[in-house]
Write a protein that binds this DNA or RNA. Structure first.
Length: 489
RNA sequence: CGGGGUGUAGCGCAGAUGGUAGCGCGCCACGUUCGGGACGUGGAGGCCGUGGGUUCGAGUCCCGCCACCCCGACCA
């Protein structure tokens, strides 16, 4: 019993760190605030990438790649944008080192005329580039995505959830009309929401951000918000309608059919390796990671149980056709007949790693023509006839996928509370956490006061929100609808 | 950047009143095991985060620095 995980009831943060580290998803690095994503963690990220990438391509987007470095002057062009990112930029000032005695030092003679910013996001470099690519309405829409790393100098970091460097995709599109750009923003929001719910089994609320929480430079920020097991909210993806802000800042215009010159309309949108954190926190338990089958790099692991090598040989023989059939059914299978670890060790290890289904086969099974099926999410075990195993496993993978979603949804619903006064508001936040639906007067001042006093922020104003007359829980002023408050990551 | 904590073997830790480093897990070898992290025997592995100081002598006492973790402020 070496790799024990701190129970989440005892210390939620430590539980999370234990899972990340002990399931082999990531590791701390020698660089402050930066993490190493280990092969198993990266395999999950690669699954996310390939699925999302397919969704972007299916909606007409193409991938491209823009520079890591952005001239400082580009940043200052969009006022709100500078304001938002200035505090967390890594800046390159020199391009050479030299030897000074035994020491390697920065060569002061190699100072850059203009400093380069390590991209915290790419709007500026991209819009500077788009200026040259867009002349007429025939060049629009321009639908581009890039998979990249970005750097935001964070004061406090947490594995996957917030690191100074992280991986993400950022889409940047240009359109001829406002309507089309807004539609694009919403289309992507749907992609994110579908991905979260169908692939990650993670229920999310779609909404818009308040002015306070809006992306620096956006006209409107749409988001998907998820609820983690500790009752804190996590922003899992954002899609921004940028209006003409960047087009104006970088003077990107196009000639319309009618021959007039207009600024283009823009969107940008992204999800990051933070989704890994969301995935981990959404489903995992005190035994380790729990992965939804659709994202699991290995969906089924098969463990042989044997004493003598003759038994192993028999099991190997019995497993081969099963493994092949599972693979033909499109299932990702690993057969672990490595003799270096005991079955018990493997059981624990694969549970820690969140493999959705484990099949166990031993002498008893050989005799009975059965195989033991253990599901990770409920930890239930059953003996199934070998003749039925493919069908059973296929169905079970689907069941697990939807069971995880249902469980998460039940949790989310159960931790969403409507409150009508400030006392109750504070009490719910304090005792239960979760999403709190409350009336708000729509002002930044009230939002900030509430944040100061309770740490809770407005996560979003849900789309298609029910209109409901009420009074702001803080100021008592009239309000037309409830918004979602929560403490957040 | 504030508050708290921790740095001793790969990991988790113990090392009262200063006397030259130990335990568990892991690792290596051999044997017995194998249906929930097996057991025995034998081994390998540490300038005790770092720089100074006190002392005959420092993991231990004093001062500085650094790193990391947790909780805040800031943010995806």
């Amino acid at each position: 019993m070496s790799k024990v995980i701190t129970p989440k009831e005892q210390d939620y943060s430590q539980w999370y760190n234990d899972i990340v580290l002990k399931a082999g998803l990531a590791d701390y690095s020698a660089v402050r605030g930066c993490m190493v994503i280990k092969p198993y963690g990266f395999a999950i990220w690669e699954r996310m990438q390939s699925i999302l990438d397919g969704m972007f391509k299916a909606t007409g987007h193409s991938n491209a790649y823009f520079p890591l470095f952005i001239p400082k002057s580009f940043f200052s062009k969009e006022a709100a944008h500078v304001e938002g990112f200035a505090k967390e930029c890594a800046v390159v000032t020199h391009y050479r080192l030299k030897k000074k005695g035994d020491e390697l030092v920065v060569d002061e003679d190699a100072r850059l005329d203009e400093e380069l910013i390590v991209r915290p996001t790419s709007e500026t470099i991209i819009w500077n580039t788009y200026k040259g690519w867009i002349q007429s309405y025939r060049d629009l829409p321009l639908l581009i995505n890039q998979w990249a790393n970005v750097v935001r100098w964070e004061m406090r970091t947490r594995l996957f959830l917030r690191t100074s460097e992280f991986l993400w995709q950022e889409g940047h599109t240009a359109h001829s009309t406002r309507e089309e750009a807004v539609a694009e923003t919403l289309k992507i929001l749907d992609i994110y929401s579908n991905f979260a719910q169908e692939w990650m089994s993670m229920p999310v609320i779609k909404g818009t951000k308040t002015e306070n929480e809006r992306f620096a430079g956006a006209v409107e920020t749409y988001c998907i918000e998820a609820l983690m097991q500790d009752g804190k909210a996590l922003q899992a993806g954002t899609s921004h309608f940028l209006g003409q802000n960047f087009a104006k800042a970088f003077d990107v215009t196009f000639l319309t059919k009618e021959g007039t010159t207009e600024h283009v309309w823009a969107t940008s949108w992204g999800v990051s390796t933070r989704l890994m954190g969301a995935l981990i926190m959404q489903h995992s338990d005190n035994e380790g990671l729990v992965l939804p089958p659709l994202l699991a790099p290995i969906q089924v692991v098969i463990v042989p149980i044997y004493r003598e090598f003759e038994q192993l040989a028999k099991i190997n023989e019995a497993i081969q056709p099963i493994k092949k059939d599972l693979e033909s059914a499109g299932i990702r299978v690993k057969y672990d007949n490595d003799d270096k670890h005991s079955p018990g060790w493997k059981f624990a290890e694969y549970e820690l790693k969140g493999i959705p289904i484990r099949l166990g086969m031993g002498p008893r099974d050989i005799e009975n023509g059965t195989i033991e099926v253990a599901r990770r999410d409920t930890r239930q075990k059953q003996n199934i006839k070998i003749s039925q195993i493919i069908e059973y496993v296929t169905g079970l993978l689907n069941d697990i996928q939807s069971a995880l979603y249902k469980k998460a949804l039940t949790f989310q619903t159960g931790n969403t509370n409507r409150v009508d006064n400030y006392t109750e508001f504070k009490e719910v936040l304090d005792k239960k956490g979760g999403f709190v639906l409350a009336h708000w007067d729509g002002t930044i001042q009230t939002e900030e006061k509430i944040k100061e006093e309770t740490k809770a922020t407005i996560r979003c104003i849900p789309l298609n929100n029910l209109k409901e007359e009420g009074k702001c829980i803080y100021s008592g002023k009239p309000s037309a609808q409830r918004v979602i408050f929560a403490k957040a990551y």
